[in-house]
Write a protein that binds this DNA or RNA. Structure first.
Lengths: 188, 188
DNA sequence: GTGGCATCTTGTCAATGGCAAGATAGGATC
DNA sequence: GATCCTATCTTGCCATTGACAAGATGCCAC
C-alpha cells in the first residue's frame, strides 16, 4: 500500500506522522528526531522538511489531528460520565497525540487548522455538560461545571500517563476514571 | 554573593538550576541547553557536567527540588480547599519545576532523592483529605477522595499552564481554582 | 609545602535541525 | 509524442548540541 518503491514514497506524510506517534509513545516528544523519522520511512534526511517545514510543523499537524480525534471520541458519548470516560480513554489510547496537544511550546498553537480542531473538541466537551440535570446547586454556572469536569478528567489522564498514580488505582483507566468523575457529579 | 570572580564560580550548581528555571519558564523544557546554561553562568560548556553528569541529571535535581517545594507549600494549608489552592498556586509560581516534575521522560524518576521528595509531597497531599468531615457519601474510600482531589487540582493547573483555558476564567488562578474545587467538595 | 580532591577548561566527536541547490517523477498542455 | 511544470525527494553543507576525555587550577587537610 505505502508504495515504498520508486523515487516517490507514496504517502510519506502519513508514514512520518505514524512513525512520530511510535517514537513519542515509547520515549516522549523530546526524543523525536526528524532524521530518525526519515530513516524509519526509508527516505533521505531532508524529506520531512518538504511536508512539514520543520519539527514544529510536524507536531502542529499531529496536534491538529489529535484535537479532531478527540472531538470524534467525545461526540459518541451519551451523558457527562460517558464523555469524561471517553476523554481519559482518548488520552490513554492516543497518548502521543494527547501529550503534544497540551504542550504548546512544541508546536504552533495559533495555526488555523489547530485552532479549528481545538474549537471542535471544545464544543464537544461543553455539549456533555449541557446535558446535566437542572436542579443542581451550581446550575446557574454551567461554564464553571464544564471547567471543573474538564479539569478532573484532564488531571486524571495526565497523572495516569505520567505514571504518577499509585499502583492501587489498578490498570483499567476507564473504570478508575469513572470512580473519580462520580465524585464530581454524584447526583447523576 | 555568587562570587563569580576567580577560577571557581562560587555556587555554580545553584546558578545553573536558577538559569534552567528561567529558560524553562520562557520557552519550555525542550529549549533547555546545557551549553546555554553554561554561557549564562559565565563558565565553560563542560562545567555543568561536573555537577549533574548530564542533562537528565540536572532535570532530576530540579524535579527533586520541586517535590520538596510542593511538600512545603502543601504543609501550610489549613483544610482541603486551602490545600488544593496551594497546589495550583505552586504550579503557577513554580511553573518550571512543575512542568518537569510530571514529565518522567525528561529525568531519572527512580532516583533516590526524587522518590523521597515525591513521597513527602504525596503525604502532604493525603493529609489534606484526611481532614474531610466523616458524614460524606464517599467517606468509606478516602483514597478515592484523594485521587479525585489530586486529579481536579492537577488538571486545572496543567490546563492553566498550557494556556488552554478560555479567557473568561480570568487571570487569578487562586480564585478560579477555588471555584473549581468547591464543586468537588461542596459541603465543606 | 605538599599531596589530594573538587572544580573548571579545552578539545573533540557523532548526531541533529535547518537551509540551499539539484535531481527525478508524473502529469498537464500543446 | 514532445515539452513544460510542479510536487517530491536527494545530496551537501553549516552551526549547535550533548557527551566524553584529558588537562589545568584552586582550595584544604595534614
Amino acid at each position: 500500500m505505502t508504495g515504498t518503491r520508486g523515487y516517490h514514497h507514496g504517502d510519506l506524510r502519513r508514514a512520518l506522522l505514524t512513525a512520530a506517534v511510535s517514537v513519542i509513545e515509547e520515549s516522549g516528544p523530546g526524543a523525536l528526531s526528524l532524521r530518525d523519522l526519515a530513516r524509519r520511512a526509508g527516505v533521505s534526511h531532508a524529506a520531512p522538511a518538504h511536508h512539514f517545514g520543520d519539527k514544529a510543523g510536524l507536531l502542529t499537524a499531529l496536534a491538529a489531528e489529535g484535537f479532531d480525534l478527540l472531538a470524534e471520541a467525545l461526540g459518541g458519548a451519551e451523558d457527562l460520565l460517558d464523555s469524561g470516560v471517553a476523554y481519559v480513554d482518548f488520552a490513554v489510547r492516543h497518548r502521543a497525540h494527547f501529550e503534544v496537544m497540551f504542550r504548546p511550546d512544541l508546536y504552533r498553537a495559533d495555526a488555523d487548522d489547530v485552532a479549528a480542531a481545538r474549537r471542535r473538541a471544545g464544543d464537544a466537551l461543553h455539549a456533555g455538560v449541557a446535558g446535566l440535570p437542572q436542579g443542581r446547586p451550581t446550575a446557574e454556572d454551567p461554564q464553571g461545571d464544564a471547567l471543573a469536569a474538564w479539569s478532573i478528567v484532564h488531571g486524571f489522564a495526565t497523572l495516569w500517563l505520567a505514571g504518577a498514580l499509585p499502583e492501587r488505582v489498578g490498570d483499567d483507566p476507564r473504570a478508575a476514571a469513572r470512580e473519580v468523575i462520580r465524585r464530581l457529579f454524584p447526583e447523576e
